[in-house]
């Protein structure tokens, strides 16, 4: 019994230490002001690998999720004779929730795991150490551009996801199932508020982008530099990011839309 309590306590302490280390790591990354001449090209390169290369999976997923929403929405709403409201249902669902959340989950699986594996491998092959010994801070040279790239790319990806989803919903609802196109766009325009819905959705995706990128780069930087260590860190990135996104989504939704 005592052993179990001790083990529980040890796990708690390890968690606190880990959070503290991650916080110090973040402070170290954000404390340095990058020089535009060197920092900007590095950021652009990472924006390409983190953002542009994630476009395919985001666009395809957005399209299918929008199409599924169109089908499900039509089936449910037509029971009440209100299938004309399908446009507002799809738009609100995507802009408020599915856009930021699903994009963040896809980001964690596609870009987050790649970031962790890349940084972990750089650590295992002593590339990070060699940077330090060359008088180059790896936190600023390697980690900071990747963190900022995730932070910037996520809201853009989430907006693209929602736009493609709305278009996918229209393909099914309007072009296939015959909902009047004017109703689809008109109801959407009347019910979606720019600040309450669109801006709040973007704020969500900014928070998710920051958290996902932070978890990914920290797990890579802090991993045990072996094959098993990198594998474990990559798994942790996906699991922790997904849980953090879902948990934070609840909190943010309660704060943004919880005016009961």
């Amino acid at each position: 019994m005592i052993d179990r309590i001790a083990s529980f306590g040890r796990s708690g302490l390890e968690l606190v230490v880990s959070i503290g280390r991650a916080g110090r790591f973040l402070a170290g990354v954000l404390s340095g002001v990058p020089r535009p001449a060197t920092g900007f090209p590095l950021l652009v390169k990472q924006l390409y690998s983190v953002g542009v290369l994630s476009l395919a999976i985001v666009v395809v997923s957005g399209l299918f999720i929008g199409m599924v929403l169109g089908l499900q929405g039509y089936t449910i709403l037509s029971d009440f004779g209100s299938e004309a409201a399908i446009g507002q249902m799809i738009a609100l669902t995507l802009v408020r929730e599915l856009g930021p959340v699903v994009t963040a989950l896809l980001f964690a699986g596609r870009a987050g795991s790649a970031l962790t594996a890349e940084i972990g491998l750089m650590k295992a092959t002593e590339q990070l150490s060699s940077l330090e010994m060359m008088g180059v801070d790896p936190l600023r040279r390697v980690i900071a551009p990747r963190l900022w790239a995730g932070f910037i790319a996520m809201p853009v990806l989430a907006i693209i996801f929602s736009m493609v989803g709305i278009w996918g919903g229209m393909l099914v609802g309007v072009d296939w199932l015959g909902v009047f196109e004017g109703s689809y766009w008109g109801n959407m325009q009347a019910s979606v508020d720019f600040f309450d819905d669109v801006v709040n959705g973007v704020i969500k995706s900014i928070v998710f982008g920051f958290v996902c990128a932070w978890i990914a780069v920290y797990q890579g930087y802090d991993c045990v530099p072996t094959s098993a260590g990198i594998s474990s860190a990559t798994t942790k990135t996906v699991v922790y990011s997904s849980l953090a996104v879902l948990g934070l989504d609840f909190v943010l939704t309660a704060v943004m839309f919880g005016n009961f």
Binding site: E132, M133, M134, G135, V136, D137
Partner: peptide
């Protein structure tokens, strides 16, 4: 970091 610029490893 300035000192390390004089070191090679």
């Amino acid at each position: 970091y300035a000192l390390r610029e004089k070191m090679g490893m």
